[in-house]
Amino acid sequence: MNVTIVDYNSGNISSVINSFKEVAKDSVNIEVTSDFNKIKSSDKIVLPGQGSFKSCIDALNSINGLVDTLSEFAINNKKPLLGICVGLQMFADIGYEETETKGLGWITGKVSKINNQNGRYKLPHIGWNQINILKDSKIFKDIDNNSHMYFVHSYEFIPEDKKVISATTNYSSNIVCSVEKENIFGTQFHPEKSDKIGLQIIQNFINL
């Protein structure tokens, strides 16, 4: 089986690569690339994202044809894709970080700044927080509700269809921290930085 981590120059993704390689057994080939043919022939794709919504979208768009290749993989061919952090946020139609920016449009919704209640909550939201699992998502197999995950973000994804939300975390309000729509999965938290529980989520995605 081939799992491709999309490398589109969006910041340091070494911890994502290391975690997937740690979890992957000999039968799983982990490839790190933006090569279209390798992406197309993959069984699963991981879309990491670090930095701002705009910088990640710009980086994707700077590789001519990459967005179309990813959309063909996830939307047309319905193969499993996991977005991490801004990788999840980019599923939205639109994001408002830095400036209004068009997203991938895979899950209807927007990405807005977390309401920190006039400074009562620090932004970015950094550190460990409990997640509230709302539906029986395949990537939460053997994960206990209220498990702690590691977060680093100031913006949140607000999907129109609440049925896609698989988990939330409470930080000033209930923030969407995981989504599942058919073959598309996303986590706002960083499974690659969330210790053994995060590795279990990576394992679950590989096992899909």
Results as ranks from 00 to 15, higher is better:
M1E: 13
V3K: 00
I5D: 08
V6G: 10
Y8F: 12
Y8E: 02
I13E: 05
S14T: 15
A24K: 06
K25N: 15
D26M: 14
V28Q: 08
I30T: 02
I30L: 03
V32N: 10
S34F: 10
S34N: 13
F36M: 07
K38W: 07
S42Y: 01
S42I: 00
S42E: 05
D43R: 07
P48H: 01
P48T: 00
G49A: 07
Q50I: 14
G51F: 04
G51L: 08
G51Q: 07
F53E: 03
K54Y: 11
S55R: 06
I57M: 12
A59W: 05
S62K: 11
S62H: 08
V67M: 12
F73K: 01
A74T: 13
N77D: 13
K78H: 12
K79W: 07
P80K: 03
G83H: 03
I84Y: 01
C85I: 01
L88A: 05
M90S: 14
M90Q: 13
M90H: 10
F91Y: 15
A92V: 05
A92K: 01
I94Q: 12
I94V: 15
E97I: 05
E100L: 10
K110I: 15
K110A: 12
K113N: 12
N118A: 12
Y121V: 03
K122A: 14
L123A: 15
P124M: 10
P124A: 12
I126G: 06
Q130M: 15
I131R: 00
I131D: 00
S137D: 02
K138G: 11
I139S: 05
F140V: 08
K141S: 13
K141R: 15
D142Y: 09
I143A: 01
D144W: 09
N145I: 09
Y150V: 10
F151E: 00
V152P: 03
H153T: 04
S154V: 08
S154H: 06
S154Q: 05
Y155L: 08
F157R: 02
F157A: 02
P159W: 08
E160W: 05
D161Q: 08
D161F: 09
K162L: 13
I165G: 00
S166N: 07
S173M: 14
S173F: 15
I175N: 03
V179L: 08
V179C: 10
K181S: 07
N183H: 04
N183V: 07
N183P: 06
F185L: 10
T187I: 06
T187F: 04
H190R: 04
P191M: 07
K196A: 11
G198R: 00
I201W: 04
I201H: 06
I202Q: 00
I202P: 00
Q203L: 13
I206T: 03
L208W: 09
L208N: 08
